[in-house]
Design a protein around this nucleic acid. Structure first.
Length: 558
DNA sequence: TTGGTGTAG
DNA sequence: GATTCTACACCAA
């Protein structure tokens, strides 16, 4: 017999999805909009619209022209600048995270969260009074028993899938699996969090409750908007339920609807299970799962190819059985890249390119300052860089992809080139416009020529500039990469060059410190005294290997 | 490290 | 498909 994946249902995961998020941000700003059909515009399309607009036939990714024709009184707001969405998203994230023990909240884009609430649920299972489930109290705080909310633990909050037979109340609770109890309690936590989100912050959300990110997200899609769904046990096969609800639930899904299976993977899977003739058929998870010979090995063979991750066969086999071991990860402190882009009808003169690049560069430097600067430290009033991107990337999209005739194969529509990011962009006392102009002149235009060496002939529909390759500054309290800054200072003192009166200063840790740290590691291997010289500004001894960075520090701070 | 693909919202 | 403006993981070279 082939071996089948085994689910680990020890965790409880909530998924939250703010309803039509961009539109809601405007509605919170201007509540009158809630009563009107509202569409958010980027360029010539409706990126999202509120439910009043959907009732009148509008939908996401619709042409503005069509939207106006179908619903002439639609209110249209511009949503190309993502700043306010980014800010609202962060605010809501921090709001929710405050409730969740251990801060186990992961962000998926601007409008979705996954919460690992296992600890909270298991604690609340422990304090349950099995003789009086209807008057339970959910404890949101381990230490203060007054913090929480009353709820009825004999029933599920919101919807379930499959729908729960009415009237299976506390009487049957004796024989209930602990998973059912835990999911029931979790459904009330989800309901509470959604109510808080709505009443405190003004945002409605849709929820999903299950035992993994995958299942919670999928089941959350069942009842939208402003509702929630719990995937009901039994998850495993029983006498009455030959498959278990997880397989039942997943099997009905079209393969493309499974998170992680995009159009490419879906097409490959369809080609194999449906064959070349039946191209229009909807292929479901069940069709793939039960295909003759199906298993991790066949899946690996089907899905292998350029760009496919290793081990994808096994991962896919797991997913087809509802097995998702991916942990809920806390959102990063810092992004791995920041990019700004704009699209254009036709960009074909160097002058217009230069103008647009300057606009993009300004936004990029603004973003770097808002996302990469620590402004909380009073000793550095202008802010302190938490990370220094080392690479600048320019991407463009030619108006027509050169390989557009055959329609058959892929159109790698974007092309890009990179260059080191010149450090002057980190100067905080210069104005952004000046820095942006200089950045375009000295870095972006040279890469542009690398991308488009021909003087003409190109016509661009999109340009994107990004900073990547972020090197975190050696943090003041945080370990930058497992290295102990305090130890470095201590060792340095104990081995200070004889005759130097002042204790040596290594270098300001806000600089790009990684090269220094490497040099330090190398020196630690030796028994040599540390060579260095005095800095007149600091009246301190600076190690030679740190001298260059130390001068940069003065030039950027003074 | 760079340039590109695929996925997501 | 691509339409918008991103962000991330992962691949080969």
């Amino acid at each position: 017999m082939a071996s089948y994946p085994v689910r680990n249902d020890s965790r409880i995961v909530l998924h939250l999805d703010y309803d039509c998020f961009y539109a809601s941000v405007f509605e919170v700003e201007q509540p009158i909009l809630k009563t009107l059909p509202l569409a958010v515009q980027q360029k010539q399309i409706v990126v999202t619209c509120n439910y009043e607009a959907r009732r009148r036939g509008l939908h996401k990714l619709q042409l503005i022209r069509d939207a106006k024709r179908i619903c002439p009184d639609v209110v249209i707001v511009l949503g190309e600048d993502l700043t306010k969405f980014r800010n609202a998203s962060k605010d809501l994230y921090l709001f929710v995270k405050d409730f969740v023990w251990g801060g186990r909240v992961e962000k998926l884009g601007f409008d979705e969260l996954s919460l690992d609430v296992t600890e909270m649920i298991d604690y609340n299972v422990g304090v349950l009074n099995p003789h009086d489930l209807p008057s339970s109290f959910f404890h949101l705080d381990r230490t203060d028993p007054t913090v929480g909310f009353a709820y009825d633990a004999a029933r599920f909050e919101g919807q379930t899938d499959p729908p729960s037979p009415e009237g299976c109340g506390s009487a049957s609770s004796l024989g209930l699996s602990s998973l059912e109890v835990r999911l029931r309690i979790a459904s009330h936590l989800a309901g509470y969090l959604r109510a808080q989100l709505e009443h405190v912050k003004g945002y409605t959300a849709t929820g999903g409750i299950s035992t993994s990110k995958l299942l919670a997200k999928l089941v959350g899609n069942l009842h939208k908007p402003n509702s929630q769904t719990t995937l009901l046990p039994p998850y495993e096969a029983t006498e009455n339920n030959s498959q278990g609800n997880v397989i039942q639930f997943l099997d009905a899904h079209e393969i493309r609807k499974i998170p992680g299976i995009g159009s490419r993977l879906a097409q490959k899977l369809k080609d194999h299970v449906a064959g070349d003739d039946a191209t229009d058929d909807k292929v479901t998870v069940k069709d793939v799962r039960l295909f003759p010979g199906m298993g991790p090995v066949l899946l690996e063979k089907i899905l292998r190819g350029p760009g496919a991750p290793r081990g994808i066969g096994m991962r896919m086999w797991n997913i087809l059985h509802g097995v998702d071991s991916a942990e809920v990860l806390e959102a990063r402190d810092l992004p791995t890249q920041i990019s700004i882009e704009d699209s254009y009808g036709r960009l074909d003169s160097l002058d217009s390119v230069r103008r647009e690049l300057a606009i993009l560069a300004k936004s990029l430097i603004r973003r770097m300052r808002t996302d990469l600067l620590d402004k909380t430290d009073p000793t550095t009033p202008l802010g302190r860089w938490l990370a220094h991107p080392r690479t600048l990337r320019l991407s463009t999209r030619p108006r027509l992809p050169p390989d557009s005739d055959t329609g058959r194969t892929y159109s790698a529509s974007r092309i890009s080139r990179s260059t080191p990011l010149p450090p002057f962009v980190f100067a905080l006392d210069e104005n952004i416009d000046g820095l942006a102009e200089r950045l375009v002149q000295e870095a972006v235009l040279p890469v542009f020529r690398k991308l488009h060496p021909d003087k003409a002939g190109w016509a661009l529909s999109l340009m994107n500039i990004a900073v990547t390759n972020l090197v975190e500054s050696a943090g003041d309290q945080k370990q930058s990469s497992g290295r102990d800054i305090g130890k470095m200072f201590r060792q340095q003192e104990s081995r200070a060059v004889p005759g130097s009166r002042t204790p040596p200063v290594l270098v300001d840790p806000r600089g790009a410190a990684n090269d220094l740290l490497d040099a330090w590691d190398a020196w630690e291997e030796t028994d040599e005294p540390l060579p260095g010289r005095m800095c007149p500004r600091c009246e301190a001894r600076i190690p030679d290997f740190a001298w260059q960075a130390h001068e940069m520090y003065h030039s950027s701070v003074d």
